[in-house]
């Protein structure tokens, strides 16, 4: 079993692990010839299934194993993220699967040229006469102090039988699909709603979980609505002029006929573009705090399409920006809706 790669895009990899880590501490990482998959299945809350093209984060990538060159690992995201952070200013960073004392681990080897601090050029000896003064040798050779950092992240190797039981959630065709507004905007508003709801919950009765329930709804006329309701208040925000992307006949079961019969086609007939109509909304109820964790993916700066299955689930597709426009990398978030 061999895995070795140099990390081509440390920032993306770091942001990715940080975003995933907010949903769960452990990731199932599947390394194969053409893809790197990260899957987070927390006990509660949103699942993430991310499939990245190799060159989104790696280059000179080799993976070999007896099981069709696929390696499945369980990786703690916190330490991995921490390790990657130390590579942010690196000149090069490599990652490989190795063993120490019979324990598998991902070893990151990071080469940095330390930023030289210049203050030592004038040594401040103080009242210190213990026989050696700070020499002046720092004056010349500033830039090429090379430091090699090795970070060892403990991992668990998962056998094919362990992962064979894990399946991506299946969902019916969505009623509404819409491109979300900038996530930072969305997140700050949903965080504010959740906070307000929690502030009320402290004095009132009832569990706080029920109080932080956000209502999210969208229609096929570019409207998104987020609202929260408690005994004391009801607030909502509406976005308009968002876009509902056209479905690609080649991607929908049944082609053109499939599109004609698609739930979203029927939803187009209902509702209005100003968001005032009561009709044509597909809505879900989600937990505000869980949503805050999902929104953490905003740091990756991808385009996000939200698919609403009315009163069932909300699925977010986060498309990572790529250089070549091909081999798109997608993170899929499965947020299930609470029943009323």
């Amino acid at each position: 079993m061999r895995f070795k790669a140099s990390i081509q895009n440390i920032t993306t990899f770091t942001k990715l692990t940080a975003s995933l880590n907010s949903l769960g501490p452990l990731a199932w990482v599947k390394l194969s010839d053409d893809q790197v998959c990260f899957t987070i299945i927390p006990e509660q809350g949103t699942q993430v299934w991310a499939a990245l093209s190799i060159d989104t984060i790696f280059e000179t990538y080799t993976v070999q194993s007896a099981a069709n060159n696929v390696i499945n690992l369980e990786v703690p995201l916190g330490p991995l993220n921490r390790a990657l952070k130390s590579a942010l200013n690196a000149t090069s960073a490599q990652i490989r699967l190795t063993k120490k004392d019979n324990m598998p681990l991902l070893a990151l080897t990071i080469v940095t040229t330390s930023s030289s601090n210049t203050y030592s050029a004038f040594p401040t000896g103080g009242a210190n006469d213990d026989g050696f003064d700070a020499p002046f040798d720092d004056l010349g050779g500033g830039g090429n102090r090379e430091t090699i950092i090795t970070q060892e992240v403990p991992v668990r190797v998962l056998g094919p039988d362990v992962v064979s039981g894990l399946h991506e959630p299946q969902c019916r065709e969505p009623d509404v699909h819409i491109i979300l507004p900038p996530l930072m905007q969305l997140k700050s508003i949903s965080d504010r709603f959740t906070k307000l709801a929690l502030a009320g919950a402290r004095t009132g009765a009832g569990s706080s979980a029920a109080r932080t329930r956000l209502d999210m709804a969208a229609n096929m006329h570019g409207c998104l609505k987020m609202s929260i309701k408690t005994d004391a208040m009801s607030i909502s925000s509406v976005w308009t002029d968002l876009s509902n992307p056209e479905l690609d006949p080649s991607q929908v079961a049944g082609g053109t006929i499939g599109i004609a019969e698609h739930p979203s086609t029927r939803m187009k007939l209902l509702g209005s573009a100003d968001g005032r109509s009561d009709q044509g909304w597909a809505s879900v109820r989600i937990d505000g705090r869980d949503w805050g964790k999902v929104m953490s993916v905003g740091r990756l700066g991808g385009r996000v399409i939200a698919c609403f299955c009315h009163e069932h689930a909300l699925i977010l597709y986060v498309y990572l920006p790529t250089d070549n426009g091909e081999d798109e990398s997608v993170l899929t978030y499965y947020v299930s809706s609470y029943s009323a």
Binding site: R145, T147, I148, I149, T150, E152, V153
Partner: peptide, 14 residues
């Protein structure tokens, strides 16, 4: 995490 930072002795003043 186990972290090892390898430094050149020349980076030391002494």
């Amino acid at each position: 995490l186990v972290t090892a930072v390898a430094v050149n002795t020349s980076d030391f003043e002494e």
